[in-house]
Computed example of a mutant assay.
Amino acid sequence: ALRELEAAGFLARTRERLPDGRFVPRTISYNRPGADREAARETPRAREASETREAGEAQEEPPAPKALERRPVPPAAAPAPAPPAPTRSPLPERHHAAASLLAGLRGREPRMLLSERDVRRLAPGVTEWLERGAHPEAVSRTLCATLPHDLAHPAGFLAHRLAALMPPPLPAVPVAPPPPDPFQNCDDCDRAFRAPEPGLCGGCRAWAAA
């Protein structure tokens, strides 16, 4: 396209030599092809280089370099202290057994790898299972049974299973009646009767009292 514009007279491309000996391309565009072309003016860069060279030749001695003013370097600011790590409240003692059970699930099923935060969040649910009479081995087996193949969030799965499969509380144990007194032989008539200690039967006590 540039060659076609140049052939039609809209464009002129030349090479210009700078005072330092380098050649640079120069492109001139024309709004009216065939008009008188003015003499190419000197480029600002070439004129600046020429004026600099002439000024350098006219000057006899180079100016003395100015002494650099040294400014005091401000001391580097001390790095800000790191914020203290947030302290977590200790886990209540009643949840220690549940936390140990949850942390050990990965030994039974590698996909049940829980973070410390997840263990603290799920421990109260496991504690409720244990307080309802569930054996720890039965709890571990139930939580790890029939896991889905695409298990991506074990903590969420365990939270759902702990709530959905919560065992009922144990029924109240009835209070057994006290055992009856043992049999004793009366010291007078040798009859058998129930009493906490040996002695006279009821009839012999009544006769003795009379």
Score class of each variant (00 low, 15 high):
65 P>C: 01
91 L>T: 08
69 E>V: 11
22 R>M: 04
10 F>D: 12
77 A>F: 09
33 P>V: 05
173 V>K: 13
182 P>Q: 01
3 R>M: 09
119 V>N: 06
121 R>A: 15
109 E>N: 05
8 A>T: 05
40 A>T: 11
70 R>A: 15
100 S>A: 15
179 P>Q: 09
3 R>N: 09
40 A>W: 06
103 A>M: 04
91 L>D: 00
4 E>K: 04
34 G>E: 15
16 E>C: 09
91 L>N: 00
139 V>R: 06
27 T>A: 13
96 H>S: 11
76 A>E: 12
35 A>G: 13
62 P>C: 00
13 R>E: 15
120 R>S: 10
177 P>H: 08
159 A>R: 06
172 A>E: 14
40 A>R: 10
48 E>D: 07
190 D>T: 09
181 D>Q: 11
158 L>W: 01
83 P>E: 11
180 P>W: 04
192 A>G: 03
179 P>R: 08
98 A>K: 06
200 L>N: 02
60 E>F: 13
101 L>S: 04
106 R>T: 14
48 E>Y: 07
21 G>C: 07
158 L>K: 00
175 V>H: 00
102 L>P: 00
126 V>N: 05
152 A>D: 07
130 L>T: 04
145 A>P: 01
90 P>G: 07
177 P>E: 15
13 R>W: 08
125 G>Q: 13
95 H>V: 05
182 P>F: 01
36 D>N: 02
18 L>I: 00
67 A>I: 02
22 R>Q: 13
37 R>G: 03
206 A>N: 11
65 P>Q: 14
90 P>A: 15
23 F>W: 12
118 D>N: 04
9 G>W: 11
46 A>Q: 07
28 I>G: 05
193 F>K: 00
172 A>Y: 02
10 F>Q: 07
81 P>K: 07
108 R>C: 01
204 C>K: 01
56 G>K: 14
206 A>M: 10
200 L>D: 03
93 E>H: 01
156 G>L: 09
133 G>Q: 11
14 T>P: 00
19 P>Y: 03
130 L>V: 05
170 L>C: 06
69 E>F: 01
100 S>M: 12
140 S>K: 14
179 P>E: 10
150 D>H: 14
57 E>H: 04
23 F>H: 06
118 D>P: 03
152 A>M: 01
50 S>Y: 02
108 R>S: 07
199 G>R: 01
129 W>M: 10
140 S>T: 14
1 A>K: 02
95 H>A: 12
170 L>H: 08
194 R>W: 01
36 D>V: 07
15 R>K: 02
49 A>D: 04
27 T>Y: 12
1 A>M: 07
168 P>T: 10
179 P>W: 06
167 P>F: 03
70 R>S: 13
83 P>Y: 02
29 S>E: 12
